[in-house]
């Protein structure tokens, strides 16, 4: 009966091993499957809203009126999406959000009065999103401040 004292040691080791396995399993399941999909979901939602806010800023900056305008409009946008900086590109009549994670890329066609020219440009997140509108009603130019 010299080995009687071994029994609690075995039991405790077994229990500790089970606990470690459980915690490891749970952690890998959460971090490997659940959390990244939530991050992508939240990031996608955020990028959609960022793009919608930026597009709204551009669209409201261009007035539907006669005469020459010279206006600047700016809006505060989040510096990062999913801890990574992103870019907003003004190309070909649309505003595009470019994120290193391609699943978060979004694009929207800007609704602007006829005769509005969009100067191609890129804004990198970090500062204020600022645009300038100038020119007469027949030829308004929208420029993205870098």
């Amino acid at each position: 009966m010299d080995e009687r004292a071994v029994s609690p040691v075995v039991a405790k080791t077994l229990a500790a091993g089970l606990a470690v396995l459980y915690v490891a399993g749970m952690t890998s399941m959460l971090l490997g499957g659940v959390v990244p999909s939530y991050e992508t979901g939240a990031g996608g939602e955020l990028s959609e809203r960022v793009l919608a806010t930026a597009a709204e800023t551009v669209e409201t900056a261009v007035p539907d009126a006669e005469g020459t305008v010279r206006a600047t409009r700016s809006v505060e946008l989040p510096p990062t999406i999913q801890d990574t900086s992103y870019r907003l590109e003004l190309v070909n009549g649309s505003l595009r959000l470019d994120h290193p994670d391609d699943r978060l890329d979004e694009s929207i066609t800007l609704s602007l009065p006829a005769g509005t020219t969009l100067e191609p440009g890129t804004w990198t997140s970090g500062g204020e999103f600022q645009i300038r509108v100038s020119g007469p009603a027949s030829n308004r130019t929208v420029t993205l401040d870098q």
Partner: peptide, 16 residues
């Protein structure tokens, strides 16, 4: 979740 881009598009289109 809300369809931000869709809303922006609808508002912009109706504005135009």
């Amino acid at each position: 979740e809300r369809p931000a881009i869709e809303q922006q598009e609808a508002a912009g289109l109706s504005d135009q």
